[in-house]
């Protein structure tokens, strides 16, 4: 079986000289739920921006068997649904509906198909009644769910989320965890929430200072106190 995400010897340096990733290799198979954990500044966000070519470093990124390069960018971006950390960055349209409709419209679907998809996605995240509101008016939890809906509308094969539960109250967190469970499929998520990691991911990748320092079943990672301490997670 070909892996859905395959990364080989990836390094990345920001234009200002910050070395954010060192020689990362990672393989994720279809249907896996993988958590990426690590202290602030470990390079987690930088890594996931490489999954769909928003950043391009040295090394190989192969998505679903397709090597990431200029001419495959469009195909790959459709496969990866990237949910950004800050919903205010993700929801840029004047109404929630337009945000959900953004990706399907870019895919060239006609308006009635777009409407079907948008309504379906809004229903899945429980925001159908809010579709005409501006996203500014939503609560943080609603914004998070709207961001997820906006990405689901692309029908991505792989869902990648940057800190999906951070900044939410316990109920908001529970709602997101349940929503992600109901969505299923291949999921990669960055998180700091070790308590919820077990219910969100079967496998955990630990990053520290731009490197992957451990990659194992979630239970094993969570029971390794020395490792968590070294990674700055406890």
């Amino acid at each position: 079986m070909i892996p859905v995400i395959q990364i080989e010897h990836l390094s990345y340096t920001y234009p200002d000289g910050t070395k954010a990733l060192h020689d990362i290799s990672l393989r994720i198979d279809s249907g896996e739920r993988v958590g990426i954990i690590g202290a602030n500044g470990a390079g987690k966000s930088t890594l996931i921006l490489h999954f769909n070519g928003l950043l391009q470093g040295e090394g190989k990124v192969i998505i679903d068997g397709i090597p990431l390069e200029k001419k495959t960018l469009k195909t790959i971006r459709r496969k990866i649904g990237l949910v950004f950390q800050n919903p205010d960055d993700q929801l840029f349209c004047p109404s929630v509906y337009d945000d959900i409709a953004f990706a399907p419209r870019n895919m060239g679907l006609n308006e009635s198909e777009v409407r079907d998809i948008a309504e379906d996605c809004l229903k899945r995240v429980g925001l159908l009644d809010n579709s005409k509101r501006g996203s500014y008016h939503l609560s943080w939890g609603e914004k998070r769910r709207a961001s997820i809906a906006a990405v689901l509308a692309m029908r991505p094969e792989i869902l990648v989320l940057d800190e999906p539960v951070s900044g939410l109250d316990p109920r908001g967190k529970r709602e997101i965890v349940e929503l992600l469970k109901s969505i299923g499929g291949t999921q990669v998520m960055i998180t700091h929430d070790l308590d919820r990691l077990k219910s969100m991911a079967d496998r955990a990748v630990v990053m520290n200072k731009g490197r992957i320092i451990a990659d194992d079943e979630t239970a094993n990672i969570l029971s390794n106190q020395t490792l968590l301490y070294k990674a700055g997670l406890i």
Binding site: K74, D88, C93, A103
Partner: peptide, 20 residues
């Protein structure tokens, strides 16, 4: 923020038009 929004737009297949 503008840069992040731009990335978010690219991630969802932006092709130059915002509202249709």
């Amino acid at each position: 923020r503008g840069e992040r929004v731009y990335l978010a737009m690219c991630a969802r297949g932006w092709d130059g038009q915002l509202l249709i």
